[in-house]
Design a binder for these strands. Structure first.
Lengths: 351, 351
DNA sequence: CTGAAAGCGCTAACAT
DNA sequence: ATGTTAGCGCTTTCAG
């Protein structure tokens, strides 16, 4: 009874062994105590010896702090979500916080996860919306009860803080890089034409193309699937026949870029000597192509640290502040982070 | 105060509104009550109207059931782990159970997650060991406190149940499939030679090769990295020059198979007309190659259902039973599941 | 700074 | 079958 799952002891045992009250033990172990005197040492020693660890249920019941943060993602096989998971999990100290995971591929499924996590009284909630999902209503309804951060996605309530990728800067970075390599014409293989993100990226790309004075052609710019096959087919169309060919190809996903490189290889066109290729999303594949693929990577470390900081700084229900602090309508913070271009061989002319 | 995070009410409010005692509310809402009479309806109605949901902390404190299960994986970017996550999360009913996730790429990191999860009193723990990690000691030390299931990995304590992939059957399936296609010689591109799994697969492959009477060659069987580049290089070596060439290539990973197909394409060798190719792990890439790649897939649905069943059937501390039930040393169950071969175009001769 | 004591909301005995 | 009641282990007043 006394010794089962945990070290087998409650705060009472520790208190007895250290000859102090349970209140003191609680204070010492939770750091709510100034001095580091003999008493503190005695308590820690006893706790260690008994293999004591707090009962989070009891702690949560009393203090309303569950030491858990909820994370909702669309799918673990999504490369972005997976990298997010791998970055966020080691960042939160496992001793003081744990990750409660919810996966939902649709708006409905995600909503269910979100509400369920909130029912669990998570201390904070991070939501990466599924493509096309709009959680503005759901999230803002809870924003005064706990800090919430949304990662990416379009729709947001003004009461929910958000961390996003600045795709505009991303595209400018790509175009500038190509300009610096001295090329003058570029093709762009966009993603799915039904996706808002694809359309947005497409527009931004062309804006920056004009800014930097690079040439392109309507035939060189098509929407399509993010598959190897599609990249292969498009590259075949562009490079097998036409007299005028682009000097560089930018792809909305590494998979497409891969198909492009396979096609170029089959046509005897060398990368990067004859054509430069740039991918997107920096998937693991980028490091295994020949030559290795230059690609755009989201700054996961910064995304995660911004998220955690926003959760921490939200005064236990961020939105509550938005109305009473200044009296006006203070929007929750929105942080846009620039991705970084991982420059590899596929986009650098060899000297 | 009454209404913050949750619907704003405790069991007391519900009881008052339904004109019953809190005990009855608890019983009705937790299903521990036979009839579905007027009282039950009144309680549910009140709960719904108040937006009531149980306080899991209080519930856990009292009953020692946290309604959480812990899952420890090496990395979310690992394809197997990611698919496991995507399969397991929707399987556990979010209303009654939540997933506490731990990620650790090393034995040490995983051990820390495991102990921390156990400190949290998860109701069950699923561990997918990092490559080479041995948690036998850690897990068996806790096996009498809560049900634990290990997925894959080599080392296990006899007190910890485990679900694994039967690679032997997998290899036999591959070889049989090729035999049925009428081919007589096969090359094998193994994974990392330092990995025990790679060596095991390699051995099994050759065993079945002999059983089915297929030919191979020492030069056709090499260990190496699981990258496109490696597959490309190996295929170039095998198919560009030598008079005698294999009729089929089996790869220990889809990535390798991809490289092989690129090389064959560059050499003007057609798949599947001239050479059959089979991959492993059925990564998303397999569906995007040209032609689509035949590959081996782990039966995630069965893995997950077996895991959950093992957790549920373990009598709240599985190993406790292993000593006192029969008096003898009853080993915890070990379930080996056969992967399935996803047959696509790359391994089927066109008629 | 420390100790005593009051609950947090719920479940499981125990009565009825 | 329902109600009454005693805590689960902890944090946090409130005194000293």
């Amino acid at each position: 009874m006394a010794g089962k799952a945990d070290g087998g002891s409650s705060i009472t045992n520790v208190a007895a062994m250290a000859n102090v009250s349970i209140a003191t033990v609680s204070r010492v172990l939770s750091g709510k105590r100034s001095k580091d005197d003999d008493i503190a040492r005695r308590v820690r020693e006893a706790a260690k010896q008994l293999g004591y660890s707090v009962n989070y249920a009891a702690s949560a019941l009393r203090s309303d702090v569950t030491k858990t943060i909820g994370l909702v993602i669309p799918s673990a096989t999504d490369a972005f979500a997976a990298q997010l998971l791998d970055t966020i999990e080691p960042t939160i100290d496992v001793e003081s916080q744990q990750l409660l995971l919810g996966i939902g591929a649709t708006q409905e499924a995600q909503k269910e996860r979100i509400e369920s996590l909130i029912d669990r009284h998570v201390d904070g909630l991070i939501v990466m919306p599924a493509p096309g999902a709009d959680h503005a209503e759901t999230l803002s309804r809870h924003a005064d009860a706990l800090p919430i951060v949304q990662i990416g996605g379009r729709q947001t309530s003004p009461h929910v803080s958000m961390v996003g990728i600045d795709e505009d800067v991303a595209m400018e970075t790509v175009v500038r890089h190509l300009t610096e390599q001295g090329i003058a014409s570029v093709a762009y293989m966009a993603g799915n034409e039904l996706s808002f993100e694809s359309a947005e990226l497409f527009t931004m790309f062309h804006t920056h193309l004009r800014t930097y004075g690079l040439a392109t052609d309507e035939d060189w710019n098509r929407f399509g699937a993010c598959t190897v096959q599609r990249g292969f087919d498009c590259a075949m169309r562009l490079f097998n026949g036409p007299i005028v060919q682009p000097e560089a190809v930018v792809c909305a996903d590494d998979t497409i870029a891969f198909g492009v490189m396979v096609a170029l290889d089959a046509l005897g066109i060398r990368v990067p000597e004859d054509v430069l290729v740039v991918g997107y999303h920096d998937s693991p594949i980028a490091r295994t192509t020949m030559p290795q693929l230059t690609s755009m990577r989201a700054p996961f470390e910064r995304i995660v640290s911004e998220c955690l900081q926003l959760l921490a700084s939200s005064p236990a229900g961020g939105a509550a502040e938005t109305t009473d602090a200044s009296g006006g309508n203070v929007r929750a913070p929105r942080v846009m982070l620039a991705p970084q271009l991982i420059v590899r061989d596929s986009s650098v002319f060899r000297r």
